[in-house]
C-alpha cells in the first residue's frame, strides 16, 4: 500500500470512530466543543516553567479515551506525526536557557529543560483534546454547533459541503495516484510537472462536479437560502458534564493539586 492509501484509511478511521455509540458520543456537540475550548485555554494559560500543575489535566483526555472507547494507539500515532514543529521550536529552550533551576539529589536541571518539558506537556494535552473532539463527535454535529454559536451560515454550509466531499475527492485522488504509481518507477513520474498535471485533472473534475452538485441543489428547490433543521436539545447529562468538567478545570488551574497531594503524602 502506498502512503496515500494508509493516510486515506487513517482519516476514514478517525471519522468512523465519531459514529460510535457511547456516553461521550451522545453528549451535545456544542457542549463538547465549549468544554474542549475551556480545557485548551486552561492548559495554555499555565506559565512557562510549569509542569506538575498541568498533570491533573491528563484526566480529561484519559476519561474521554476510556469512556468513549477510542483506541489509544490512534491518538498516539497522530501525536507523533504532528510533533516535529513543536519539538523543533521547543528544543532551543534547553540550548539557550541553561541556568540551573532545580537541583535534585545532585542532578542539576536547567530552566530550559523545564520549559521544554512544559511545552511538550501542553502539546500532548491540547492536540489530544482536539483529536478526541473529532473522534467522539460527528463532524456535522460540530458544524451545527458552530451554526448555533452564530458562526455565519455560509461558512457552516460550505464546511458541511467540504466534509461531505473530502471522502469523495480523496477516493478520486486515490484512483489517480494508484494509476500514476503503477506506471511510474522510482522517482520518475513524481516530479512537479507530472504532479501539476495530476492535480490539474483533479481540480478540473472537482469544478465540474461542483456544477453537477449545483444542478442537484437547484432541482430540490434551492432559492439561495440554506435551511437547516437543528435538533439541539440540551439534556441533563450535558449540563452535568459541562459543569463538572469546567469546575474541575478551574480547580486544577487555580490550585496546584499535584503539589498538595505530594505534601500530604510526603509528610
Amino acid at each position: 500500500m502506498s502512503d496515500f492509501d494508509t493516510e486515506f484509511f487513517n482519516i476514514g478511521y478517525l471519522d468512523t470512530l465519531a459514529y460510535k455509540e457511547t456516553f461521550v458520543h451522545r453528549l451535545n456537540p456544542g457542549i463538547k466543543l465549549i468544554v474542549t475550548l475551556a480545557f485548551i485555554i486552561s492548559v495554555v494559560s499555565f506559565p512557562k516553567y510549569e509542569i506538575k500543575g498541568m498533570l491533573p489535566f491528563f484526566l480529561f483526555p484519559v476519561f474521554i479515551i476510556s469512556a468513549g472507547d477510542i483506541p489509544l494507539r490512534v491518538i498516539l500515532k497522530k501525536l507523533m506525526v504532528v510533533s516535529p514543529f513543536v519539538l523543533f521550536v521547543g528544543i532551543f529552550n534547553p540550548l539557550l536557557d541553561t541556568r540551573t533551576m532545580y537541583s535534585l539529589y545532585g542532578v542539576e536541571i536547567s530552566g530550559g529543560w523545564i520549559s521544554f518539558a512544559s511545552i511538550v506537556v501542553k502539546f500532548l494535552l491540547t492536540v489530544s483534546s482536539a483529536l478526541l473532539l473529532v473522534a467522539t463527535t460527528s463532524f456535522p454535529g460540530i458544524c451545527f454547533a458552530l451554526d448555533r454559536l452564530k458562526v455565519p451560515r455560509i461558512f457552516v454550509v460550505q464546511l458541511l459541503f467540504l466534509y461531505r466531499y473530502i471522502f469523495v475527492l480523496l477516493e478520486e485522488a486515490l484512483r489517480i495516484v494508484r494509476a500514476r504509481n503503477m506506471r511510474s518507477f522510482g522517482k520518475k513520474g513524481r516530479g512537479i510537472r507530472s504532479f501539476t498535471n495530476i492535480v490539474g485533472v483533479l481540480l478540473v473534475r472537482s469544478i465540474e462536479r461542483s456544477e453537477r452538485i449545483y444542478q442537484a441543489i437547484c432541482s430540490r428547490g434551492f432559492d439561495g437560502r440554506i435551511r437547516l433543521i437543528k435538533d439541539f436539545r440540551l439534556r441533563f447529562t450535558d449540563i452535568v458534564f459541562a459543569t463538572v468538567a469546567i469546575a474541575a478545570f478551574i480547580i486544577f488551574r487555580s490550585y496546584d493539586v499535584t503539589e498538595m497531594l505530594g505534601r500530604v503524602f510526603s509528610t
Binding site: 456535522p140 458541511l160 461531505r164 444542478q215 442537484a216 441543489i217 432541482s219 428547490g221 433543521i229
Partner: peptide, 30 residues
C-alpha cells in the same frame, strides 16, 4: 422544480449534505 423531481446519475453529486437525514430534509425545508 417543485413538480419535477430529478434523480441524477451520480449519487455522490445528488447527496450533498453530510448526513442522510439532512440530505432528504433539504428539499422539503426549501
Amino acid at each position: 422544480r417543485k413538480k419535477v423531481g430529478i434523480v441524477f446519475q451520480n449519487p455522490d453529486d445528488q447527496l450533498f449534505m453530510p448526513t442522510v437525514f439532512d440530505d432528504v430534509a433539504f428539499g422539503p425545508l426549501n
